[in-house]
Write a protein that binds this DNA or RNA. Structure first.
Lengths: 148, 148
DNA sequence: CGCAATACCGACCTTTAAAGTAGGCAAACT
DNA sequence: AGTTTGCCTACTTTAAAGGTCGGTATTGCG
C-alpha cells in the first residue's frame, strides 16, 4: 500500500506544476488539496533537499519545481517519500542477502513484481499526470470517503 | 509491501504441493520452512475455510491441497491472506467512492498499477512457483538476514 | 525599523497494524 | 486412554503511519 506521504507528495508536485515557475506557498497547496499544512511541511523538505523543488522563505516565498514536469518520473518522487518500492524486505535497497534465496520458491516472483513496479512508475512523468486531469472527468458527488 | 501472512501462505501452499495428496502436518511444514507453528496455525485456517486446502484432525492428519497446483493463482492466495491488493484505499474492495475521484490526478495511475498487480499475480499459478525452484539455484550462504 | 508571511526543523503524540504467543477445545487415530 | 493433529480466541509486543506543536531563520512590505 502506498502511504499518504507518497500520495501527498505526488499531489503537491502536481499542484506546483500547475503554477508554472511562480513560488507557491505551501499554505495554498494545503488548502487546495485539503491536507494539513503541518503535515505537508514534513513531507516537502525531503523533496527540496534532493532538489526536486526549491523553496524560498519569507513573504512572497513558497515552493516551485526545478525542472519541467516531463522531467520527473513518479518513481523518483515515490522512492524519496515512500522509501523503497520493493514488495518484500529481501529485495529492499540495503538488504542483506536472504539466506534462503537459493531455495526460496517465491523470490523470482517478488523480483518480477518489483521490476514491474519500477518500470511502471519510472515510465510515468509528472506531465502525464497533469494531462490526465486536464480532460477533466466530472466528479460524481456521493458521500465522503477516503481521499487519495 | 507484502506481509508475512501472504508470503508464508505461498510457501505453505508450495510445501503442501510438493507432497502431492498426502496429508501433511503443519508441524512438518513449519519446521521445513523455518517459521513458527503457532503462527502458521493462524494463517492456514483461512485457506481451509475457502477450500483451497483441506485439513483433517487427529493423528495421521494434516493438510493437503484440494486441486492441482496449476489451478491456484497467486492472486487468489494473496487476496485471502493479504486482504486487498489495491495500492490505495480508494480502490479497495468495499471502499466508498472517493469524493475527489473526479479531480484526482493520481487515480488513473493507481488504478493502472492495481490492474498490473492483479494481472501479474493472477497470471502465475502455484505450479509455476514449483517449477522455478525445481531447477534448483544453488544457495549462496552469507550472513543472516530477512527470510522471505 | 517592526511585522507578517513563509520554509524548515526537531520533538512529541495517538492510533493502527503486523507479527507472534499462549492456552485450550475438537476430532481422529493407535 | 492417550497422543497427535487442526482449529479457535484472546493476548502481547513492536513498529510504523499519520499527524500535531512550538520554535527558528529568512525575507519582503509598510
Amino acid at each position: 500500500m502506498i502511504s499518504t506521504r507518497g500520495r501527498y507528495a505526488l499531489r503537491v508536485m502536481c499542484d506546483l506544476a500547475r503554477h508554472g515557475n511562480e513560488y507557491t506557498p505551501l499554505k495554498d497547496v494545503a488548502e487546495r488539496e485539503g491536507v494539513s499544512l503541518k503535515y505537508l511541511e514534513r513531507i516537502v523538505p525531503v523533496l527540496a533537499k534532493h532538489r526536486l523543488i526549491e523553496g524560498v522563505q519569507g513573504r512572497g516565498g513558497g515552493c516551485r519545481l526545478t525542472r519541467e514536469p516531463s522531467e520527473y518520473t513518479l518513481g523518483e518522487i515515490l522512492r524519496l517519500t515512500e522509501g523503497d518500492l520493493a514488495p518484500v524486505a529481501c529485495l529492499a535497497d540495503g538488504a542483506p542477502e536472504c539466506p534462503r534465496s537459493g531455495e526460496c520458491p517465491t523470490l523470482h516472483i517478488w523480483s518480477g513484481y518489483y521490476k514491474l513496479t519500477l518500470d511502471y512508475f519510472d515510465g510515468i512523468t509528472l506531465a502525464d499526470l497533469l494531462r490526465d486531469t486536464a480532460g477533466g472527468v466530472k466528479a460524481r458527488g456521493k458521500a465522503g470517503g477516503s481521499p487519495c
